[in-house]
Structure formats: C-alpha cells, structure tokens
Amino acid sequence: MSAQEITFGKAISAGLRAALAEDEKVVLMGEDIGTLGGVFRITDGLMQEFGPERVVDTPLAESGIMGTAVGLAYRGYRPVVEIQFDGFVYPSFDQIVSQVAKTHYRTRGAVPMPVTIRIPFGGGIGSPEHHSESPEAYFVHTAGLRVVSPSTPQEGYDLIRAAIASDDPVVYLEPKRRYHDRGPVDLAAPLRPMGPAAVAAAGTDVTLVAYGPLVKTCLQAAEAAAGEGISIDVIDLRSLSPIDYGLIEASVRRTGRLVIAHEAGRTGGLGAEIAATVTERCFHWLEHAPVRVTGFDIPYPPAKLEHHHVPDLDRILDGVDRALGRANSLDSIDPFAPPVPLAADGTERA
C-alpha cells in the first residue's frame, strides 16, 4: 500500500490515466475535455499525454456524443463519455436508454457496450439551473445499465477503473462538490469489483444508507450522534445498480432500523426502492418503518435555497431520531392530518 493524499478529482483523473495507459481501446469523449482539460479539470493533461484521437473534444451535442460512443463500441472501443453537468445528460437520454443500455440484449450478447458515462452530479456548489441535479433514479430504473457513485478519492479511483474495465455500460456519478476533498489513494491498488457496498462507519443502533456526496455528511452525522450515545452503521452503497442488499440486510437485521439519505427527490427515488426491498426481505427484523431523508419533490432550487433542499447533517440526524422513535423527532409531533382519498373528479372528498 503506497497511498498518497490527493484530491477526489485527481483520483478520478488518475483512474482515467491508468485506463488509457492499460488499454489502447479506451477513448475519452466530451465537451471541453481535451485542450481545456474539462470544466472541472478531471481530464487535465490527458489529451496532451495521449493525443487528440484518444481524448476527444466533441461538438456540443450530447446525443451525438453518446451515439458515436455506441458506434465506437460496435467497432471494439471502450468509450468513456463525459457529460459536462448532470442537467445536460437529457439530450442523450434516448441514446443511453434505447441504445447503450439495450444493444447487448438486442444482439443476444453479440455486441457488448462497454461505455462509461461520467456525470458530475448533485448540488451544493451554488450553481445556476441544470448544474446540480441528481438523475440517478432514471438510470437505476433502466435495465442494462450499471450505476455507481464513489464517495471517497480511493473509491473514485477504484470505481472509474472498474467501470471502464466492465463489459457492461456504467453510469459513473461523480459527487462534484467533493472534487476538492483530499484522501489517501493507493494508485497501485488492484482492480476491485464495482458491486460491493462498504461499511463507512460501523454502528449498532441504526443503519444509515447513502452514496456519493452524502456519505461524508452521514459520517459527520454518525460522529455527532455518537456524542449522544447513538451508534450509526453508515453504509456507502458505491453501486446503485445493482444494490448490494446483502450488506444492508445484514446491518438491518442487527439494528432493526433503516434510514436512507439522498439529494434526489423522494418520489420514485432510490430511497423508496431500498425501503421497499428491505421491508420485503427484513420485515420481521424492523423495529420502525424505514425513513427517507431526501431532497424535496421540486426542481432543483436556486442556489440561495439549495441548503434547504440538500439533506444536511441536522436533517439526517432528524431522520435517525425518527427511526429510533425519539421524542424530539417529527414522528412524535405528527403534524400531518390523515390523507384524504380523492374523489373521482380529482377533488378531495369532504
């Protein structure tokens, strides 16, 4: 182990460099990734090092980038596509969902799609509209894709290498507000599989599941809770599709309580999926209904409002309190009137 302290961004960059060096079929494509080195500088220096045929500045057309990546994969290449910001991925949505995800199935395995789609995602950096979104549920819902999100520089390095090495298409979600965080990275680490989740902090009272940017916040919450004598088992998913339910279930069977945190809106989000699956499989071990701490079901708000939207340490701790049924939580206050079924005309029944 020869770990060195580098930033999250540099760790991803090192993973890309390693992949380019290891396999000549790896081609990086994206807007501003060549001469400029990417708007976040993740590909800084790579075009100069590997040439413009392997680190390709593309026209400003996301569907075009994704569709040509499909064609390159048909030719035996392993394209690594950078979508500049989360909110810019939608023009390429058709190529991702209908082509990248389905070509292997369509051809009964004759044409693999080893395409890696890098997307800086999530909020917290004071950006304009379309620069802070969390679109992971769309991709998790799409059969044929794998989805991963690292939470530490080491994971950033490991997962990008594993994603590029995979014969399946992988959506790699980079927690952009953690790009400048530093951490130890072993650049000589062997290739690790993408699937397994990790215990970020061991605990016994509550299972707290998160991924990407919120893992750090959850670790801070666990530290704060420890001061009150509450022991939180923080699970870092790493892989969002498939999800390593084995680790989550083992934890929930010990703690009996589950909290899931993500920045994305609640409805149809990963928290809903994890809560449902864990409830199906661990119903008799649960001491409380699973609790979700998420962004609201709103478009990502303007920068001056985002601190309300993105779950922070206090909201995560509130969720933990709810899962524990503590007196200071909203559960004990119950501010909600019982829901009223809607009448056939859409109005609320009297």
Partner: peptide, 24 residues
C-alpha cells in the same frame, strides 16, 4: 448492426464506427 427502430439513431452509430475505422 442490429436493426434500429428509433428513427435516425443509427446514423450516429455509423459515424462512431467510422471514427473507430479512422483510428484503426
């Protein structure tokens, strides 16, 4: 390539394939 039912999507695949040919 496999038949393409999404209208026009395959035009990009051909261009991407040709980018590969160019590199090869």
């Amino acid at each position: 390539a496999a038949q393409q039912i999404i209208i026009g999507a395959q035009s990009l695949h051909a261009v991407g394939y040709a980018m590969g040919l160019q590199r090869d």
